[in-house]
C-alpha cells in the first residue's frame, strides 16, 4: 500500500508536472578523471536517465557511455577521448557524459513514473573529435579538406523508442557543418549547445546515431565521440500515455518476483539495475518470452534494459 502511495506521489507531483535534470553530478568521480564502466555497473543513472555502458574486462575497452570530469582541451588523439572541448560540463559543472557511437547508442528513460518527455539536452564535441575535425589525423580528414571547400559534416541523429518500437521522427544535430557555400559559415561545435527534443513527446529511450561525410570501407573515419550534459525530462501528462506505460512487454508489473519479457525475439543482452544504478544481473542470449525472478531483491524500482534484434528497449518494473 505504501509503495502505491509513493507511486501516486511521484506521478502527481514529480512525473506529471516536474522537470528532472540529469547532470551526472551525482556520479562521484574525482576531478580530471573518468569512469568508463570498468566498475562493471553496466551504466550510469542520473535524474531520469540511464546511460548504458558495455565494458570489456579482458581488453579494457568500452562502448556506450562514460562519465567524465576531464579538463584537457589541448591534446589531440585517442588518448584524450574523455574530454569535452569546453573542459567542463554544461553550465560550468564538473561532470558530463561522453558517448562513443561507432554504432548507435541509447539514452534510457529510467524514471519510476515510466516514459518521459525528454525536453532537451546539452551537446558538445569531445576534444578528440573537435581537434580531429579541425586538423585531421592519421585516420580521418580535416573537415573542409585542404581547400576548405569540401561539404563535410558530422551529424548526430536522435530517434526515439516507444514501447520498444523505433519512432519515425528524428532530430539532427550537426557537431560540424561545412556544407555552406560560404566557408565563413562553416563551423565545428566548440562549446555546450542546447538541443530541444521535446517534440518527440513521451518516450522510453533515445537512440543516437552518428554519421559523417568522412567514411570509407571501415566505416566512419571521424572519431565518433561526443559529450552530453543536463538532460532534461518531464513527466507524463496524459492518461493515454500512462496507459501506454502499462502495456509494456514486462508483465506482471508491479510484481512479487517473477516477470515475463514478452513480445520479443531472441534477447541478445539483458541487464537489470536497481534505482541507484547498480547492475544486479546481466544475461546474454535469452529465449523469446523469457521469465526472470526478482524475488531475491528488496521491494523497489528496477530498471531493465535489453536488446532484441536491432531493437533496444528500456523500462522499469516495480517489485512489491
Amino acid at each position: 500500500m505504501r509503495s502505491y502511495l509513493w507511486l501516486l506521489y511521484l506521478l502527481c507531483f514529480h512525473g506529471l508536472f516536474g522537470q528532472t535534470v540529469a547532470d551526472f553530478e551525482n556520479i562521484d568521480i574525482a576531478i580530471d578523471t573518468f569512469n568508463n564502466g570498468s566498475d562493471g555497473e553496466g551504466g550510469f543513472h542520473s535524474g531520469d536517465v540511464f546511460l548504458p555502458n558495455e565494458y570489456d574486462d579482458a581488453f579494457g575497452a568500452w562502448r556506450g557511455w562514460a562519465i567524465s570530469t576531464k579538463r584537457d582541451t589541448i591534446t589531440s588523439g585517442f588518448s584524450n577521448q574523455y574530454s569535452a572541448i569546453d573542459g567542463k560540463g554544461a553550465s560550468g559543472t564538473d561532470t558530463y557524459a561522453v558517448g562513443y557511437a561507432f554504432d548507435p547508442i541509447t539514452i534510457h528513460i529510467a524514471s519510476v513514473s515510466g516514459p518521459q518527455i525528454v525536453d532537451g539536452l546539452h551537446l558538445s564535441n569531445s576534444t578528440y573529435t573537435y581537434l580531429s575535425l579541425l586538423n585531421g589525423d592519421a585516420f580521418s580528414k580535416r573537415f573542409g579538406g585542404a581547400s576548405g571547400d569540401e561539404p563535410d559534416y558530422l551529424l548526430i541523429t536522435f530517434k526515439y523508442y516507444v514501447d520498444g518500437t523505433l519512432g519515425a521522427d528524428s532530430i539532427n544535430f550537426y557537431l560540424a557543418d561545412f556544407r555552406a557555400e560560404d566557408n565563413s559559415s562553416d563551423y565545428i561545435i566548440d562549446g555546450w549547445t542546447y538541443l530541444d527534443l521535446g517534440s518527440f513527446g513521451t518516450i522510453d529511450s533515445l537512440r543516437c546515431t552518428m554519421s559523417s561525410t568522412d567514411v570509407g570501407a571501415f566505416g566512419i573515419n571521424t572519431p565518433t565521440f561526443f559529450c552530453i550534459d543536463r538532460v532534461s525530462t518531464s513527466g507524463t501528462t496524459t492518461r493515454a500515455e500512462t496507459q501506454n506505460w502499462r502495456r509494456t512487454p514486462i508483465s506482471p508489473n508491479p510484481t512479487h518476483g517473477p516477470i515475463e519479457i514478452g513480445n520479443t525475439g531472441l534477447i541478445s543482452q539483458l541487464s537489470i539495475h536497481n534505482s541507484a544504478g547498480h547492475l544486479l544481473e546481466r544475461h546474454s542470449y535469452l529465449p523469446r518470452n523469457t521469465t526472470l525472478d526478482l524475488q531475491s531483491y528488496p521491494a523497489g524500482t528496477y530498471h531493465i534494459s535489453y536488446s532484441s534484434a536491432s531493437i533496444y528497449y528500456s523500462g522499469t518494473v516495480f517489485r512489491k
Partner: peptide
C-alpha cells in the same frame, strides 16, 4: 609526414 587531409604531424 601528415596526410594531405591533415594539417600537421609530429609522428
Amino acid at each position: 609526414p601528415p596526410r594531405t587531409s591533415q594539417r600537421t604531424s609530429d609522428a
